[in-house]
Amino acid sequence: MTTIWNATFISELLLSMIRMATPILIVAIAELYSEKAGLVNIGLDGIMAFGSLVGFLVSYITGNPYLGLFAGAFGGIAINMVYAVCTIQLGAEQIVYGMAINIFAPAIASFIYKIYFGISSSLISAQLMKPLPIPVLSHIPYVGDVLFNHTPIVYLAYLLVPLTYVFFNKTRAGLNYTAVGEYPKAAESLGINVIRTKYIASIICGFLAGLGGAYLTTCYISTYSDGVVSGRGFIALSAVIFGRWAPGGVLLAALLFGFTDALQLRLQVLNSGMPYQLLAMIPYLCTLFVLAFFGIKKAGPKANGKPYFKEER
């Protein structure tokens, strides 16, 4: 085992980490936008599943993975609007409704796939997005390949982190947005439109979660199958908690989870003799251990998960 830790292995591992962390990062930031407005959305897995189907389908039909990616994002918005209307307007319990989305969205995705490709189709592949190496930077030895030779969506994902940080910490809109998740009644009394903010949050969340799902089928695997998301939505949820609701923290958490995923994949490829099922447990077990050791007690927006009614007493 000691011999595998050579330069190629490590650079492959890091490259893979960046790639694996990307969907988790995007979706965790989706959740961050949702929770900052007081909406806990545990339906991420479902939104991702739908996004991955739409992304795959559009990419397959048009041959253009970029179109697929964006279509996936808009698919995410569409699904999340169901969640938004029910939790914001009807005050449905957010956890319960998130669960409903987790059941509902994959069912639709699977249905559409079967309708389009027939009941008993073999695996169908679509075009994957090609990496876009950044000139000059990608030629730096080791680092260049790890950091600057990715699909554009990867750059975008990492760009989201500082953008989100600036939004929440430096802009007026971000401050107002935060107030909605902390103390909606106070926000309302200051003329901030709580309901609208929550809808905006749901749109952003749906867009990004759909994008994260579509990433899987347009940039990562060239096929769609049920269960392609395999719990990444929940890992993203953990990343938000572990990242303490701060963009930087979320990035670190996503990288950590990406690393464990990359590690198990690399080890599988190396054929180290370990059964792949045991290796595949690593990311899930790591998530558990990380949360158990660091993710102590509640934090995050105060009014998180609570319904808000305008004429509440």
């Binding site: 545990i42 956890i95 395999s230 719990g231 929940f234 890992i235 949820l237 953990s238 908690i241 059964p275 099922q277 045991l278 595949a280 447990m281 899930y284 077990l285 998530t287 558990l288 949360l291 158990a292 993710g295 102590i296 007690k297 509640k298």
Partner: peptide, 26 residues
């Protein structure tokens, strides 16, 4: 530890399923 029980139980699902897979293929 104040952990979110939903996340924990979901993670344990994957662990259990993989463990079962390990058993029936090993």
């Amino acid at each position: 530890r104040g952990l979110n029980e939903m996340i924990v139980s979901i993670m344990l699902n994957y662990v259990a399923i993989l463990f079962m897979g390990y058993l029936y293929s090993g």
